[in-house]
Amino acid sequence: MNQESRLKSILEKGIFAVTAECGPPRGADPDAVLKKAGMLREKADSVNVTDNQTAIVRMSSLAACAILKQAGVDPVLQMVVRDRNRIALQSDILGASSLGIRNVLCLSGDHQSFGNQPKALGVFDLDSMQFLQAVRAMRDSGLILGGEALTKPPRLFIGAAANPFADPMDFRVTRLAKKISAGAEFIQTQCIYNMDRFRKWLQLARNRGLTERVYILGGVTPLKSAAMARYMKDRVAGMDVPQTIIKRMEGVPKERQREEGIRICVETIAELRELAGVKGVHVMAIEWEEAVGEILDRAGLLPRPSLD
């Protein structure tokens, strides 16, 4: 079993990295995970496993990561602070490392009110920033919160998310800087549709030298339809879908909208590759993992280089 993070290795080698996303099933069926693994293996360098995304109960991210790992995929364990207090979070970090999981993405998580457990207590004992810091300290200093030493520190490549499209704009880069100083080694961004704003954000990050301190992976999501574009614009928090994109999707007949979505996605990836400071792409094909291969192929990112 590979003991290193493939994602880390790719990024360190200066190769334009590719990550994809895998949502665990709403059931206890490991095959569903394996099926998605099959679709993404060889396509992406690493695969993120979401942690009860949009606050809907699914197979635990940690378990799904373990399955992926067994299937030969390099998983990125997403962990949200919504559902676990600092004790559970730290213990899961240790567990993940022990299972050979080598990437962790520290997140706040979608608010519980959006999902199917709106009556749940949101824990938010730590926030994502504090969590990053805690994981970094566990790994680098072998200390947990409060300063006690671990018998063996975890081995993890530590990531965080960033949303260049949320407000207040000016503070977004500050927050990126904070995440970096808290311990983030790679950043996966929110889906990019508004390239102008993304460039602006990137420029600010570059100005502060942040792009030199962290690997930024631009997030993309292929649109399935004009309706989805509109939905994402209006209903999904933190999402910025410009009118031009919606127009473009609406401009083609319904049956060809998927194709158009993929085309936009491919174009976006092409643009991202040209940007200084973007070190990779994170493809979040929501419940459409089969499209990932096509997108990456058309974007010229396949096949993935071998590290051996």
Binding site: R82, S108, G109, H111, S113, G122, F124, D127, S128, M129, Q130, A161, A162, N163, F165, A166, D167, P168, F171, R175, K178, A182, Q190, A237, G238
Partner: peptide, 13 residues
């Protein structure tokens, strides 16, 4: 909503 002490989260709009 998320008791963030190092916010804002990506949902601030």
């Amino acid at each position: 909503s998320k008791q963030l002490m190092n916010g804002p989260c990506g949902g601030s709009r």
